[in-house]
């Protein structure tokens, strides 16, 4: 089904780009430590920028982690089920738990981001940097997670979920 491939590709690309951000905020922290301890000059923007980059980083990776089945789960019971029962049990999990959460996450983070955008919200510390890009990223992350859930749900329904194989013991 093309939609599965499109969604998986989108989150794969996002994941491969966003994962690199960890190196960037590690670098900024080191730069700040160096400037402060060696040259006696704290970097005014480092605190807020680092915090925002970390926020962008992990929240945007939620869909990517789901695409790789990296989210921890307890499959002691489901691993003992027959494959069709297991597939439908897991699919039901998406309907009962995942979609209500992902929907509320998407809907509420949209409102949240729009409020911030309309107010032109900035941080109020040593420097003023805009807050709304991070809040918008949260909405984008919610959408990425929601569509990846749709992809995983379809894989279960269509019996294409690669993680459900008789031989593989699923561990984190």
């Amino acid at each position: 089904m093309p939609i599965i491939r499109v969604i998986d590709t989108v989150n794969e690309i996002v994941g491969r780009i966003v994962s690199v951000v960890a190196i960037i905020f590690a670098g900024i922290i080191i730069y700040d430590v160096f400037m402060r301890s060696a040259l006696g000059q704290p970097t005014r923007w480092a605190f807020d920028v680092t915090k925002q980059l970390y926020g962008f980083y992990f929240i945007l990776l939620g869909g990517y982690a789901l695409r790789h089945q990296a989210h921890v789960r307890v499959d002691l019971l489901t691993a003992r089920m027959t494959l069709p029962v297991r597939r439908w049990t897991e699919a039901a999990g998406y309907l009962i738990f995942f979609f209500p959460f992902a929907w509320i996450f998407t809907r509420e983070s949209w409102k949240f981001a729009m409020t911030s955008w309309n107010q032109g919200e900035v941080t109020y510390g040593a420097v003023s940097i805009p807050v709304y890009p991070l809040k918008m990223a949260m909405f984008v992350a919610a959408v990425l997670l929601l569509i990846q859930g749709i992809s995983e749900f379809l894989k279960l329904i269509l019996d294409r979920a690669p993680h459900i194989e008789p031989e593989i013991t699923h561990v984190r």
């Binding site: 789901l66 989210h71 921890v72 789960r73 307890v74 499959d75 019971l77 489901t78 691993a79 297991r86 049990t89 897991e90 039901a92 999990g93 998406y94 009962i96 738990f97 995942f98 979609f99 209500p100 959460f101 992902a102 929907w103 509320i104 996450f105």
Partner: peptide, 19 residues
């Protein structure tokens, strides 16, 4: 129930919150 269904813990928690 959600845990025993083998659903990821993160979304069992989030889904339970919403419901």
């Amino acid at each position: 129930v959600g845990l025993f269904m083998g659903h990821p813990l993160a979304f069992v928690l989030g889904g339970t919150a919403v419901l």
